[in-house]
Design a protein around this nucleic acid. Structure first.
Length: 669
DNA sequence: GTAGGCTACA
């Protein structure tokens, strides 16, 4: 039987099936079809460029490498194994693993036999491609040939196991290696420590780090940085900084990667000033920020809606001679989309394509997602088509975003069709299922939602807290509070910890059922599980209490917000004002309305309408018309309910008409 | 010949 090339991608007919559903391509994405590459490369190289998507920077180098290889293999005598190994390891550094395989075969056919080094290189290539099992078969071959593996061989395989999250096997292999008398070096320790960190066992990793010196191996900057990065990712920045200073006290100097992890960590906690301080510190120590440093900072600024600051950082980066890459552009495009500057985002996309930086699945996904959220799902389809055309294979995230887009514009049949295709092609993941469940819930097709939920477990996919929350919310909205509560219990008994969103959905559902008591019990449960209610939870509760006529409880909860260090938003203010208006407590409602402005939370359209409706309902027409004028002056307008009230009052009482007339004449003067 | 860092979907 012929062995299948393990690294060859499975061919898929998915795009062909999908293309039928997608219409013709139109502007404004036409520029994405233009190839800005002004090269005179041959068609073969062009084809490579498109299919393998090589980075242009490494492309020329790879081209040189291939040319020189083709030259050397015709030399007489042939270069030695040592030379070929050096050449292959250069290719590994360029991440050209497949090329290494084919060239290695050629070298073999030329009659040059393998040694430990060449086989270790092959093992490393398999490991980088997440094919550690093939790495082990090469390892077996090595033993069969009577070649003795060394620490590097073991380290490579340990790293390969870690990359595939087989951390237990990695530890086992590590112990085996030690038992056979091989001394692990700092690379071996760093690999296994990093593996543990990635597996969430940072504490075990720290234990290993602390034991290293006694085992005769001093940790270096890579060992420390792996743990510092893990701590930062777990938002334990304080501990990370502590380890950072411990490392420096031991005379190990940080490098750009150490700083990047820390900067990323503090950015995630929203401490951009500390990020800038760290950046200054690194520059003082002659460690230049690189493209990763800037990318982290730019992304943090974008995510915080500070897109113009991000653009400034982008300019500084270019001034410092750091070349932006696809991640830089993608983050900025994301920032512009988040800040609702889609046109600018497209202009930047054009700029990056012009600079010969190819958008990737991330970049395209931001466009797909933004277009879908804007209700422009047909444009999102076009993006998918462009991706296929450009040789960039759309992935599950892209299809999930598109599916969500179909759901958002209520094209549930199209969403289902796409979903079924994804299931057939075995790429559907939990997100796909959750998105479809959400779609069915929003289309009030709750039974279909439930079916998809059941289908999931048949496929061996475990619904997560978001899947449960989505279906629970759907059940409440479909008027099935009983099922919703059963699902909640089910979820807890299946070991899924409800999060703030889940609790909020439950509390909201119970409140709308008029079941305030049970909602409050759940609030207690939530607080017991160390979850602090957020503004959304408070808003739901205040609404619930007001609806239940418990205005005093609502007022009490409203004041407790401040005690918990939370600043109410417009939604909270609207909720409490609505409650006060409902009780006819217009003075208090008006006081809240005025307080909002004082604390810098400007009333929006909704707030004006609530307070105006309150005054109208309680027939304080002078106050109502005063506020109507103020609202209009601030650029807001009456909503349907307010208009209806005014019209209703107009019919029954022409007093308001006269009043409004007087005001209009007054303002005309 | 071996180890560490950046971007997207509910």
């Amino acid at each position: 039987m012929m062995m299948k090339m393990p690294w060859r991608r499975k061919s898929r007919s998915f795009h062909l099936q999908l293309q039928g559903a997608i219409g013709t391509i139109q502007s404004p994405f036409l520029f994405l079809f233009t190839n800005y590459c002004h090269s005179s490369t041959s068609t073969l190289e062009d084809a490579r460029f498109l299919t393998n998507n090589f980075k242009s920077a490494s492309f020329t180098r790879l081209h040189d490498a291939i040319a020189s290889f083709n030259h050397v293999i015709h030399m007489n005598p042939l270069p030695s194994r040592v030379h070929f190994n050096r050449f292959l390891s250069a290719l590994v550094k360029m991440k050209q693993y497949h090329t290494v395989f084919s060239m290695s075969k050629t070298i073999e056919l030329l009659g040059i036999s393998h040694n430990v080094y060449s086989l270790s290189i092959l093992i490393n290539c398999f490991c980088h491609l997440h094919l550690v099992d093939f790495g082990f078969s090469v390892f077996g071959k090595m033993l069969k040939f009577g070649l003795e593996p060394n620490t590097v061989t073991f380290t490579t395989l340990i790293n390969g196991l870690c990359k595939e999250s087989k951390i237990d096997k990695a530890v086992e292999f590590f112990d085996d290696m030690v038992a056979h008398g091989y001394q692990p070096n700092v690379y071996t320790y760093s690999a296994i420590i990093n593996g543990m960190c990635k597996f969430g066992k940072t504490n075990v990793a720290i234990g290993l780090l602390n034991g290293m010196a006694d085992r005769g191996c001093e940790p270096n900057v890579v060992t420390y940085s792996a743990i510092i990065d893990a701590l930062c990712k777990d938002e334990l920045v304080g501990e990370a900084l502590e380890l950072f200073s411990q490392m420096r006290n031991k005379g190990v100097s940080p490098d750009v990667i150490t700083y990047n992890s820390l900067i990323h960590g503090v950015c995630k906690l929203g401490q951009k000033n500390q990020a800038l301080a760290l950046m200054n510190e690194m520059v003082e120590q002659n460690i230049s920020p690189d493209v990763y440093t800037f990318n982290v900072l730019i992304d943090a600024l974008c995510k915080d809606g500070m897109v113009s600051e991000a653009q400034n950082t982008f300019n500084i980066m270019i001034q410092r001679g750091v070349e932006p890459n696809v991640v830089t552009y993608t983050s900025l495009i994301d920032g512009l989309c988040i800040s609702d500057h889609f046109k600018e985002a497209l202009a930047l996309l054009k700029e990056m394509v012009g600079r010969n930086i190819s958008p990737n699945v991330f970049t395209f996904n931001i466009l797909i997602d933004t277009l879908c959220k804007k209700g422009l799902v047909s444009n999102a389809q076009i993006i998918i088509k462009i991706m296929v055309q450009r040789g960039e294979e759309p992935n599950v995230v892209n299809y999930n975003s598109l599916m969500d887009g179909y759901c958002l514009c209520k094209q549930i049949d199209k969403a289902r069709k796409l979903f079924d295709l994804m299931v057939t092609n075995e790429i559907a993941n939990i997100f796909s299922y959750t998105i479809l469940i959400n779609g069915y819930c929003k289309c009030k097709m709750i039974d279909d939602a439930k079916d998809v939920f059941v289908e999931m477990s048949h496929k061996g996919l475990v619904p997560d807290v978001v899947t449960y929350s989505t279906l629970i919310e759907g059940m409440f909205q479909a008027g099935r509070p009983q099922t919703a509560q059963e699902l909640f219990k089910n979820m807890c008994s299946h070991g899924q910890q409800p999060n703030i969103v889940t609790f909020s959905i439950m509390i909201n559902g119970l409140c709308s059922q008029g079941n305030l008591d049970e909602a409050l019990t759940l609030l207690k449960k939530m607080e017991e599980s160390q979850l602090k209610p957020n503004l959304v939870t408070y808003c739901i509760l205040i609404n619930g209490m007001c609806k239940a006529g418990k205005i005093n409880d609502a007022k009490e909860l409203f004041s407790s917000l401040f005690e918990n260090g939370l600043q109410p938003n417009v939604h909270i203010y609207s909720a409490i004002m609505k409650g006060l208006c409902r009780q006819g407590l217009m003075d208090e409602a008006y006081k809240v309305f005025k307080d909002m402005e004082k604390v810098g939370c400007l009333p929006n359209n909704c707030c004006y309408n609530i307070i105006i409706q309150g005054f109208l309902k309680h027939e304080d027409l002078p106050k109502a018309s005063e506020l109507i004028n103020e609202m209009v002056d601030n650029g807001f307008s009456a909503d349907a309910a307010t208009t209806e009230l005014v019209v209703h009052l107009l019919r029954n009482n022409d007093l308001i008409l006269r009043l409004l007339k007087v005001r209009n004449e007054g303002s005309a003067n």
